[in-house]
Amino acid sequence: MNGQEVAFLILAVIGGLAGLLVVTSRNVVHAALYLVVALASVAGVYLLLAAPFVAFVQVIIYVGAIVVLILFGIMLTRAPVGRRVLDNTLRARVGAFVVGAGVFIMFTVFLGGAFGDERIENQGATATEALGESLFRNYVLPFEAVSVLLLAALIGAIVLARRD
């Protein structure tokens, strides 16, 4: 095992544990804070894969914006300190299990089908320039499609929030 693999193992264990705690934690705020740890360890994995740009964007977007937004939402609605928040009904648990297991199976099947036992060679660090080039030259159409999708989500949110 080389240093990279050891580091990956540590990150995988931390991230996996944090992920488990996100769904088992009895307190929503604790769950959101464990989510920070899980997302940060994913950023660590990106760093190990020599993709620093993706890693730090992961931190800015997920830790800095999305979790902050989640915490903001929780604090604005209900966040009793100490008292436990238990609204996990059996139905919700079964639904969550089905979705989680489905995603897990999907990823294992798809990734296994795509790469199988193939070993991917160690590549040098992805230069940010190369990333931008491929994103805006080769994949510009999917990129624009995603931005239209986001715009649709934004308009949908406004429609839902308006009362008149």
């Binding site: 705020v29 804070l33 920070v36 620093p52 740009f53 730090f56 964007v57 931190v59 800015i60 830790v63 800095g64 914006a65 979790v67 902050v68 915490l71 903001f72 604090m75 966040a79 300190v81 100490g82 660090a125 230069a127 940010t128």
Partner: peptide, 27 residues
């Protein structure tokens, strides 16, 4: 770092989590 600008932005956005933790946990 090749992406030093983003590192500094990312780090300063993490500090916010500390502020929120302090705010909520104080009861």
């Amino acid at each position: 770092s090749d992406v030093g600008l983003f590192v500094t932005l990312a780090l300063s956005s993490v500090s916010v989590i500390g502020v929120l933790m302090a705010a909520w946990s104080s009861a």
